[in-house]
């Protein structure tokens, strides 16, 4: 193999490793960030039937990029509840799979459960079904965003 061929081989190999590594890292991040799912089903011909699945990575990016409404009236309430939200979000991440709340009454069923890396809230009622799944990581990012906003609000006071 000539020197030029070796150089070309090294360049191709480096590009291959970079592309494979980047794709692998992206796939891992994509998988790890889970997905946000929303499903609504209302019975009847004119009932709403919606099923939406968004990759968690996109939702996390949206959480990072979207500005929060500058509603200063929220600040005192947030001050009080943010530590509790933070503690709860962190704790949720460590929980094993479990049904946290399960309420059935008169044909209606509400359930909040931790499944894998997601919190799933489902409501089954006579007038429809509603289900939302949110990755715990997205929840933590929302809390972090609120905390940083709150930090700025406190500094501005």
């Amino acid at each position: 193999m000539s020197r030029g061929e070796r150089l070309a081989f090294a360049i191709v190999l480096t590009i291959g490793v970079l592309v494979t590594g980047t794709a692998g890292a992206a796939a891992y991040a994509w998988h790890r960030s889970g997905s946000v799912r929303l499903a609504v089903h209302e019975p009847g011909d004119d009932g709403l039937d919606l099923a939406l699945t968004l990759p968690g990575a996109i939702v996390n990016a949206a959480i990072a990029l979207c500005p929060l409404p500058a509603d200063l009236a929220l600040d005192p309430q947030l001050d009080a509840i943010l530590p509790a939200l933070r503690a709860t979000a962190d704790r949720l991440a460590d929980l094993p799979d479990a049904v946290l709340v399960d309420v059935r009454d008169d044909g209606e069923h509400v359930r909040i459960e931790k499944v894998g890396r997601e919190i799933v809230v489902s409501v089954h009622a006579r007038d429809g079904r509603f289900e939302v799944a949110l990755p715990v990581e997205s929840l933590r990012r929302i809390v972090s965003k609120l905390e940083s906003r709150q930090g700025r609000a406190i500094a501005a006071r």
Partner: peptide
């Protein structure tokens, strides 16, 4: 109604 509540 057979109401049922499970919290943990």
């Amino acid at each position: 109604g057979h109401a049922h509540v499970d919290l943990q």
